[in-house]
Every structure is written in structure tokens, then in C-alpha cells.
């Protein structure tokens, strides 16, 4: 932030560039463009976006969802998995009693009562009206308390400078990031799917189903009516937006 004096001098400089009148119009302009649309545009709590992951359809050894996510967001491996961003990861499991094996993708679970949101000192870690948990990287100071608080280890801190970002996925050093449920895609158009779900379908597994958990007619709610879906670490009662079938 600049001290006011410097700011005043710069504004003066702009004035010298040939502007004399327009400044007073700014508030009016802002409020008009925004208010006119706020009633129709923007996220609303009428929706709650979520994922349903059918582990019986998820193949061990397949990482199409991870690749799809990384490609979409321009996450390039530096060769060190411990410091690279990990928005989504694949885990292979074996049941200790039955010996049955399963495989699943793990990512931000978009909790309703998200520990990361509670602990964030600046409020940069926040939950959108439609239930998507995000980091506002403009106010993130990189304290990493949310990484400590996340029970799912779904958050990554960016350890080094990044280049060649995608224009729709800004990412940079010193802030925390995690799965955004591809907000830039689903905000833009109706019926858009997150990249992981698209990649999984392209691989003919269709293990990841995306949809509105508040809409009784949506595919995801219907699917959840048919088979019991559970939450990872349901003991914490976080009411996650990502659910698993046959966990």
C-alpha cells in the first residue's frame, strides 16, 4: 500500500495526462453495472455444488482426473511431489478386515463447516454462497494455518515462483490453493463440468458425478438416493460437498 501522499501525487499525474472530469462518475458507474446485474447474476445459495465419486468405477493406476485437473489449471510438476501443488490425488486402499482393494481421488471436500475457513486470519479462505470453498488469493498472506487445519490434506502452499499460467487460472508464489471445483468453468456456462469429471468420463470410467446437491431432480441427488454415499472422516461432521459411494 502506498502512503496517501504518494497516491495523491500519482492521481495528480493522471490528471496531468489530460483528465479533468471523470472521477466523480466512478461510484455511479460501478454501482450501475453491478447492481443492475446482481439480481440476475452471481452465485446463490439456492445451489450447492458437489461431487459424487463412485469408488467401484475408479480404477487403480488411472490418474486421468489428476492429469485433467493439472492441465486445466496449468499445474506443472517440478519433479518434487512434496512441494508441488496437489489439488487432487489418487489413493489406493485396502480394507484391513476383508482385504478388499479400492481406489479413489481425494481433493478439497468443500465442507459446509470448513475448518480452513474458520481458522483463516484474513478471511481469504472462504465459502461461496453455492458451497464452494475457495482461497481468495488477493487477500491470502500465506500463513498456512488452513493447510494445518484441513483434515483432508487438500491444500497446497506454493513454494516457488510460477510462470506460464493459464489466463483463467491465476496462480503464484506464497499463497495457498486447492481444488476450486473449476469455478471458472461452472460459472461461465450452464452444464459445464469440472475438468476431473470430464477427464474421468473421457476415460470411460464416469466415476465422478458433478451436480447440485440442493436440486432433487439433479443426477447427483438421484444417484445418492439409489446408493448410500458416505463422507470421508464423517466423525468430524463437516457435511462435505464431496461424497463417496462404496468407500
Amino acid at each position: 500500500m502506498l502512503p496517501n501522499k504518494a497516491q495523491a501525487a500519482r492521481r495528480l499525474f493522471l490528471q496531468r495526462l489530460g483528465v479533468f472530469s471523470a472521477a466523480t462518475a466512478l461510484p455511479a458507474l460501478l454501482s450501475s453495472t453491478v447492481d443492475a446485474q446482481s439480481s440476475t447474476k452471481g452465485v446463490s445459495s439456492a445451489q450447492r455444488w458437489g461431487l459424487l465419486i463412485d469408488t467401484s468405477k475408479c480404477a487403480s493406476g488411472c490418474d486421468a482426473c489428476v492429469r485433467g485437473c493439472h492441465e486445466e489449471h496449468g499445474i506443472n510438476s517440478t519433479g518434487n511431489e512434496h512441494t508441488d501443488a496437489q489439488w487432487i490425488r489418487k489413493i489406493d486402499l485396502q480394507n484391513n478386515l476383508s482385504g478388499q482393494k479400492s481406489s479413489l481421488p481425494m481433493m478439497c471436500q468443500h465442507c459446509e463447516s470448513a475448518p480452513c475457513v474458520d481458522v483463516c486470519p484474513t478471511g481469504a479462505s472462504f465459502k461461496r454462497a453455492d458451497g464452494i470453498v475457495l482461497v481468495n488469493k488477493h487477500t491470502c498472506i500465506g500463513c498456512r494455518y488452513c493447510v494445518m487445519a484441513c483434515p483432508y490434506k487438500a491444500r497446497s502452499f506454493i513454494h516457488e515462483p510460477i510462470s506460464d499460467q493459464k489466463s483463467w487460472a491465476p496462480r503464484g508464489q506464497g499463497t495457498v490453493e486447492s481444488c476450486t471445483l473449476c469455478v471458472h468453468r461452472i460459472d461461465a456456462e450452464k452444464d459445464q463440468q469440472p475438468a476431473c469429471a470430464v477427464a474421468c468420463t473421457d476415460e470411460a470410467h464416469s466415476a465422478i458425478l458433478f451436480g447440485d446437491l440442493n436440486d432433487p431432480d439433479s443426477d447427483i441427488v438421484k444417484a445418492m438416493a439409489n446408493q448410500p454415499a458416505s463422507q470421508v472422516r464423517s466423525d468430524l461432521q463437516l457435511n462435505t460437498g464431496v461424497r463417496y459411494v462404496k468407500l
Binding site: L30, R128, D187
Partner: peptide, 14 residues
């Protein structure tokens, strides 16, 4: 201003 509109309220294509 646009930044907050987009990030917090999901208003895009502005």
C-alpha cells in the same frame, strides 16, 4: 472491484 465480484460472487464475463 471486478476482482472481488468475480472471486467472491462468481460474476464473470465482465
Amino acid at each position: 472491484h471486478q476482482r472481488d465480484e468475480t472471486v467472491i460472487r462468481g460474476i464473470r464475463d465482465e
